[in-house]
Design a protein around this nucleic acid. Sequence first.
RNA 1: GGAGACGUGGCCGAGAGGUCGAAGGCACUCCCCUGCUAAGGGAGCAUGCGGGCAUAAACCUGCAUCAAGGGUUCGAAUCCCUUCGUCUCCGCCA
Length: 427
Amino acid sequence: MLDIQLLRNNIGAVADRLATRGFVLDRPMFHRLESERKRLQTRTQELQASRNSLSKQVGVLKGRGEDAGPVMAQVAALKDELDANEVRLGELLKTFDAFLAVLPNLPQENVPLGRSDADNVEVKRWGTQRSFDFPVKDHVDLGEGLAQLDFATAAKVAGTRFSLMKGQLARLHRVLAQFMLDTHTAAHGYTEVYSPYLVNAASLTGTGQLPKFEEDLFKILRPDAEPLYLIPTAEVPVTNIVRNEILNAEELPLKLVCHTPCFRSEAGSYGRDTRGMIRQHQFDKVELVQIVAPADSVAAHEELTGHAEQILEMLELPYRRVTLCSGDMGFSSAKTYDLEVWLPAQNAYREISSCSNFEAFQARRMQARHRNERNKVELVHTLNGSGLAVGRTLVAVMENFQNADGSIAIPDVLRAYFSGLERIGVG
RNA sequence: GGAGACGUGGCCGAGAGGUCGAAGGCACUCCCCUGCUAAGGGAGCAUGCGGGCAUAAACCUGCAUCAAGGGUUCGAAUCCCUUCGUCUCCGCCA
């Protein structure tokens, strides 16, 4: 949610910045809603003020045993107009909220302008791409060759876009998540969180998935209760920890890390990444979340991105960091870095982490606030990033650490989790 | 699943149709007093959204908010309905 004051005072600038994202702000609509709101709200409040003071008089008169009839008649005369105004104001505010709820966040000034991922800007490249003296296989061929990755059975059990792992490969998947959690808690100062995997609509509205992106979510309807949604990312339950809270200054920054499965319907991506486990309905992710004072969020964004990069570096996976251009950023983000890992079989860098600063956009929706040094209540800034997507990390390890015989070497930092096992082979 | 109780500010807690945005306490901020391990006195102190107001702060003022949403009423924290949540007892259960 954008600051309504900013829209009132500076709509031209807001429209210009939204345009860099390819979003056309309906300014005539805004002006119509706003002037109608002002008129209706002012009038309604006037009438309410009259009703309140007259009703008070009734109480005073009755308390003294005097006749309150004439005053009650005055109030009754207001009633029709007041009721009508309240109803119309309520409807208008609903329309207004719906209008505001679908406005995306404003990009930061230094976000590169562009229309699509083709305009994203590489800002950093790390590691050397390994050269193979044998034909590289992709993770599907590797995993099926080891008889430890089985998409056919996953399809039988659930459907497409699911995967089933067994044996050491399943173990590697688990160990990767644990390694990430251990690193972020021990070395980067995050507190580990275990959270619900189903959340209510209010939480999804708070982080911006609703109302606009309902078709991306798995929804569970219940006959006698509110619907629940499978989380598309741990960002939702973890960030909503601070919804409707006022935090004290000393509680910030809040640095949380959470490993969860993530569920996405992938409604808009029918033809894309159909092979392998790059794009699944269910995947695991270790998510980093920070809740910080507004002045600290730019630095926190760099820090958090660095924490995600640290995992890639410890795993010796070549990657690059990309600043998403204005047209490619997510709805709620003010600035996003994507980390892309090198996948030799695709001969390409593929997204493995997305680290965003939402500034006050989510906090305003959630009413997540803190008391600053001057004891004033203000909105916090929220950030998150994958640290990392576990399934895609598994893919990267498999493809980058493969041997000519189809076995997979275990990265050094993971050996301690593997009782000294050095490679995953057949059997 | 059955029965019952409950939900009030940052926290605890009173309030049971009328001057209640809400006593009292704790915490916090400022001032005074005292100098002695912590106490006494005074003041301030909810949030959201409007209007004055014009870019802001401050200030004044209005409206709304006592879990959420509806309803009754001239008037609702208080009465009614629905939803959400918490607790207790019984049942079932990894």
